[in-house]
Design a protein around this nucleic acid. Sequence first.
DNA 1: GTCAATTCACATGAAAGAGACCACGGTCTAGTG
DNA 2: CTAGACCGTGGTCTCTTTCATGTGAATTGACGA
Length: 401
Amino acid sequence: MGSKLDNIFSSYANSNIFKDKSVLQINYTPETIPHRDKQIEEVASILAPAIKGERVSNLFCFGKTGTGKTLSVQYVTKEILKRVSDSGADNLKVVYLNCKLKKIADTEYRILAEIISALGESVPATGLPTDAVYSKFIEIIERKKQLILIVMDEIDQAVKKISDGFLYNLTRLNSELKNAQISLVGISNSLTFMDNIDPRVRSSLGEEEIIFAPYNALQLQDILRERAAQAFTEGVLDEGVFSKCAAFAAREHGDARRALDLLRVAGELAEREGSKKLTMEFIDKANNKIERDKMLDIIENEPRQHQLVLYSIINLAGKEKDGVFTGNVYNKYQEFCQKTKVEILTQRRVSDIIAEFDMLGLINVDVISRGRMGRTREIKLMIPINLQPKAKEILETALTI
DNA sequence: GTCAATTCACATGAAAGAGACCACGGTCTAGTG
DNA sequence: CTAGACCGTGGTCTCTTTCATGTGAATTGACGA
């Protein structure tokens, strides 16, 4: 037994694939950001007045995930803060909010609470009227003359959850403030985000807009090379690895984060297998693993009712020859509910749950009209065929079927 | 055969309820001087 | 007399139900050629 563990540990300790793995971690901020000079300059020139504590134009950054939006903005704000503190002033506060993290931002209340706590104060997690939180917020920032720069990452997520009303409130707040001023930087993954928000908000929010184009495969390679030089021991990587990684990620709309993830997971796999070199095969394996883990993780952590619905879909997907529809799913779902003694939800609710799965990419949904056969959703299971048994197993244990 | 009306089986929206959580302020209790 | 325990109130949040309205094409049935 001990010798077995010895083997595992020693192969791990001896492996010299990584020099510094943290470089590949998502939260690592690199020194340089290749191929984003133009955008960084733009951001910098727009935010420059903040150094003197003057209000800056509201800024909006668009671009798909992993195109360096967040990084660029953070880089610029960091530089600005550095200069501000060098000059000894403290009339600038930068608040960074990631609206994708569910706990932070799915209500107006929480966003405010998060901003306030980022400013070093605190408010209860719940229990206060929203306008009380607003006035507390105003009170806090009005204490002195300063500029509050609020960076809202993935702002589209927040707006989808709430309405755009809070953005309106926030932009309008400036006219009520005497000392402090607020500027917003919105970062959005969706290019069409601006189209469906209130025109009043749009005009005040979109004073400046910057678009981040996806990286192409060559640019991705540059990025990978640069990071890999720091992350991996020399000579570990095959030359083809970069282009392969980049190609995979370029297929996913040039997502650099994805490319780096791929490289990291591939490295981990190579390390685990005690390989001396990181060859192309590991990239393939890593790609599968990432997909697999992501999906199974989602499935495992869904609430019970959702799992039941998904289980019904998986069960129907194989059998039904002319497609799976909402009605089918609901019937099957009722069956399983009775079997597991779980309360049965209304069809209305199940319909929404199905829509949520669509958003998660577990299924693909088309609203079709079958004439006299009514209008319904046609559901296609998107879990890869080789994962389905595993997914089923997870659901069965979770639901004790 | 053509055309409009009908009809199906849900989609999609809006509103509101239930139950959990939490802060706040007032009241009660027990310990202290 | 005061600190802390304990309630009731009023607020939010999430998940859900209820009620209402919308919708695209297969089907139907009337109509004219």
